[in-house]
Design a protein around this nucleic acid. Structure first.
Lengths: 112, 112
DNA sequence: TTGGAATATTCCTTTAAGGGTATATATAAA
DNA sequence: TTTATATATACCCTTAAAGGAATATTCCAA
C-alpha cells in the first residue's frame, strides 16, 4: 500500500543522499563529480546512488566511460501531492470543527 | 544542514509509521485506538509514536488516562515546500535548456 | 490507598544500513 | 591487446532499527 512511498522517503532520509539530491538539483553529474563535491569516497557514492536509483529518484545516462546521474521529477511531484493532501485534509477537519463550534455558540446564544 | 529534514523523512520512511500518520490524518487518536486499527501491539505503537514525536510530526494531548496523538501540520508544509522546490528548479533548468537549443537551432538555420 | 486501565520503557534478539578497503567490470585510448 | 580511467560490487565490521515479551509508570475510580 504505502510501500512505494516508504521506499521513496527512506531513500531521502539519509543526510548524504539528501545532499546528493540537492546537488543533482543543480544539474546532472557523473559519480566522480558527486563524490568530489560532497567529499564522499567513490564506493559509498555509488552505493547511495544505487539506493536513489532503486527508489526511482534518479536515472542514469551512460556517457562513454562515465555514468551521468539525473534527478527524476515524478517522485517529487508524487511527494508534493502526498504532502499537500495532509495540509488539505487537516484544514478541512479544522473547518468542520469551526462549523461545529459556531453551532455550539448559536445554541449558547439562544439560551441566553 | 539537511539534518532536520532527514529526520523528518526518516520518521516517515517506515510503513507502520506511514500508516499511523495516514490514520491520524483522519483525526486525533489515543495510542490504543491506533494500535487496534492498525493491528499493531501497544509497545511498538508507542515506540513508533515516539519517533514521530521526536521528528515533531505529532503532538500529545493528555486526556485523563490516555494520550491523544495529533498530527502537526508544519512539517508537512515544510516537506511540501522542499519537494516543490525541486520541481520548480528542474523546470527552470529545462526552460534554460530549451532556450539554448533554440539558439543552436537559429545558428544552424543561419548556416543553411 | 488499593486496583485497574492506558501508555511508556526496558531488555533481548535479529536484521539491515552505512562506512572502509579491496577488487571486479566496462569503456576509451594508446 | 594492453593500459588507464570511471564506476560498480564484494567483503568485513560496527551500529542502529524494529519486533516481541515483560515490566514500570501514570492516572483515575472505587
Amino acid at each position: 500500500m504505502s510501500e512505494r512511498l516508504a521506499r521513496t522517503l527512506f531513500a531521502l532520509s539519509d543526510t548524504n543522499r539528501l545532499n546528493i539530491v540537492e546537488l543533482l538539483k543543480t544539474g546532472p553529474l557523473p559519480v566522480g563529480e558527486i563524490a568530489a563535491q560532497l567529499g564522499l569516497n567513490q564506493p559509498q557514492t555509488s552505493k547511495h546512488l544505487k539506493v536513489l536509483l532503486e527508489a526511482d529518484l534518479v536515472r542514469i545516462e551512460p556517457a562513454a566511460n562515465r555514468r551521468i546521474y539525473h534527478l527524476r521529477t515524478e517522485p517529487f511531484q508524487g511527494l508534493t501531492a502526498w504532502s499537500q493532501s495532509f495540509e488539505q485534509q487537516m484544514v478541512s477537519r479544522m473547518t468542520r470543527l469551526e462549523g461545529y463550534l459556531e453551532q455550539i455558540q448559536d445554541t449558547v446564544n439562544l439560551k441566553e
